[in-house]
């Protein structure tokens, strides 16, 4: 019943035998031991399970692990490189963009994907980009500032923060 799949996770090729019905989020958490991805609702509503699939955010609680076969995944564990925090990680800390931390890994991944395609997003563009990710603690305002902070770090010119 098990099937062998090979995925590239945070730049490393990983092969494992999985049940076809195993959800991607549990594959990441329990097979690959990547605990930064969380489960919050089971219905693709809250977004705390979001990871990047070939650079695009997906909600890993409604995708089977076998569907990721041959694809490339990025999780929060892959955001930092060479011991250096990613600019969005710095931004979230500097702007108090997190409280309980449960939504944070997914929120940062979605933000990093946004900044890949839009180096200088407006507040409105940021709010739209993260609107698939719920946060119950912060009220989002500091998350917006955190993403703007990261944008300014990654792309110092032109100045970030243009209005909507």
């Amino acid at each position: 019943m098990h099937r062998s799949i090979t995925v590239t996770v945070n730049g490393q090729s990983r092969t494992a035998e999985v049940e076809p019905r195993m959800l991607l989020v549990y594959f990441l958490r329990e097979v690959l031991d990547l605990r930064g991805v969380h489960v919050g609702c089971d219905t693709t509503s809250c977004g705390v399970c979001a990871v990047l699939l070939d650079g695009v955010p997906v909600k890993s609680c409604t995708m089977f692990a076998v569907q990721a076969d041959g694809r490339s995944l990025t999780t929060v564990e892959g955001l930092a490189s060479n011991g250096q925090k990613h600019a969005v990680q710095e931004g979230f800390k500097e702007e108090h963009g997190l409280q309980c931390g449960f939504c944070t890994p997914a929120m940062m991944l979605v933000a990093s994907a946004l900044l890949e395609e839009n180096a200088n997003p407006s507040e409105s563009e940021i709010r739209w980009a993260i609107s698939g990710n719920l946060c119950r603690c912060t009220g989002y305002q500091n998350i917006v500032k955190a993403v703007q902070h990261a944008a300014a770090t990654l792309n110092p010119q032109p100045a970030s923060g243009r209005t909507t």
Partner: peptide, 10 residues
Amino acid sequence: EDDRFIAGRG
């Protein structure tokens, strides 16, 4: 407390 959360190590 933020360092562990932003690293996914909560």
